[in-house]
C-alpha cells in the first residue's frame, strides 16, 4: 500500500501537463446523523438515536494530488436501541461527535475528467465523542463518558461523471490508532484519561462516503453526501459505534475549473 501511494506520488497523472493551476473548493454541509453505540464503560445497553450535524470540507487539487481537510460536528439524543420494559429510571444520552480529518491522495495514472478516476492516499483523523448519560430526577444528574481517537491510515477514492454531476466514493481504513478511553465517568476525574496505542487486534475502523456533486463545473454547486463510519475497540470495556449521516452542502469553488 505504501509503495502504491509512493508510486502515485512520484508519477501524478497530470504531471505531464505541467504547471496546472490548483483547484480549490469549500463545502459547508448540514444534515442528519444517526448514531448507534455501545460502550461497556457506560452501559451494557446499546443506545441509538438521531440528531443533526454540520461539516466543513476544504479540498485543494493540483496535478493529480488532492489535499483534503474536514471538520465535523454532530449531536444526537440516544435512547436504548432495544426494548427496556423494566427501566427504574428514564434512560437517555446526549451524544456529540466532533472530528477533524486531513489527508492527501494521489490520482492513479490513466484517469480523465470524463472517465472514472481512482486515487490512493493517506489520512489523519481525530475524533472526540462525548456521551452524557442523563439521569432524570436522580441525585446524580449526569455522567460523562468520553472517547478520543487519533488515527492514521490509507484511503481510496473513486470518482466518475454520472449525468450532469459527479459521483465520488471513498473509503478510509485507519491502521494506526491512539485511543483515550477513560475507565469510567470522567465528571470529577479527568486523570482517568488514558491515551494508549491500540493495535489492530483491538481496534478496527472504517469510514465510507458516497457523494453526488451537482454541476461540478460551476463555481457554486450543491452536493449530497452519505457517510457511514464503523468503529470497534476491543479492550476490557469494549466500544462499538456505527454512525451514518446524510447531508446536503453548498460548494464554492475557486481557482481553475475543469
Amino acid at each position: 500500500m505504501v509503495a502504491a501511494i509512493a508510486s502515485c506520488a512520484w508519477h501524478p497523472a497530470h504531471a505531464q501537463a505541467g504547471g496546472e493551476p490548483p483547484r480549490q473548493s469549500l463545502t459547508v454541509s448540514l444534515g442528519m446523523v444517526q448514531d448507534t453505540r455501545r460502550d461497556a464503560a457506560d452501559s451494557p445497553l446499546a443506545y441509538a438515536g438521531n440528531g443533526t450535524g454540520a461539516r466543513i470540507d476544504y479540498d485543494r487539487v493540483r496535478e493529480g494530488s488532492r489535499l483534503h481537510v474536514s471538520l465535523t460536528a454532530g449531536r444526537s439524543t440516544l435512547t436504548p436501541a432495544g426494548s427496556v420494559p423494566q427501566a427504574d429510571i428514564p434512560l437517555e444520552e446526549a451524544f456529540g461527535l466532533y472530528a477533524l480529518e486531513a489527508g492527501m491522495d494521489w490520482q492513479l495514472r490513466g484517469g480523465s475528467a470524463r472517465r472514472a478516476e481512482f486515487a490512493l492516499g493517506i489520512e489523519f483523523g481525530s475524533t472526540l465523542t462525548l456521551a452524557r448519560h442523563l439521569y432524570a430526577g436522580q441525585d446524580i444528574a449526569q455522567q460523562s463518558f468520553d472517547l478520543g481517537v487519533a488515527t492514521l491510515g490509507p484511503t481510496a477514492r473513486w470518482t466518475r461523471r454520472v449525468g450532469a454531476g459527479q459521483v465520488a466514493a471513498s473509503l478510509a481504513v485507519p491502521l494506526l490508532a491512539w485511543v483515550d478511553h477513560p475507565y469510567a465517568d470522567v465528571r470529577f476525574a479527568p486523570q482517568l484519561m488514558h491515551v494508549h496505542f491500540a493495535p489492530l487486534s483491538q481496534f478496527r475502523q472504517a469510514n465510507g462516503e458516497l457523494s453526488y456533486a451537482f454541476r461540478p463545473e460551476s463555481r457554486i454547486g450543491i452536493t449530497a453526501t452519505y457517510r457511514l463510519g464503523i468503529f470497534e475497540l476491543d479492550e476490557l470495556e469494549p466500544v462499538r459505534h456505527v454512525s451514518q449521516s446524510f447531508s446536503v452542502g453548498v460548494v464554492r469553488r475557486f481557482g481553475a475549473m475543469p
Binding site: 423494566q86 429510571i89 439521569y135
Partner: peptide, 10 residues
C-alpha cells in the same frame, strides 16, 4: 457511580 443493567434496573 451510577450504573444500569440490560433490563433497566439501576
Amino acid at each position: 457511580f451510577a450504573r444500569e443493567l440490560q433490563n433497566g434496573w439501576s
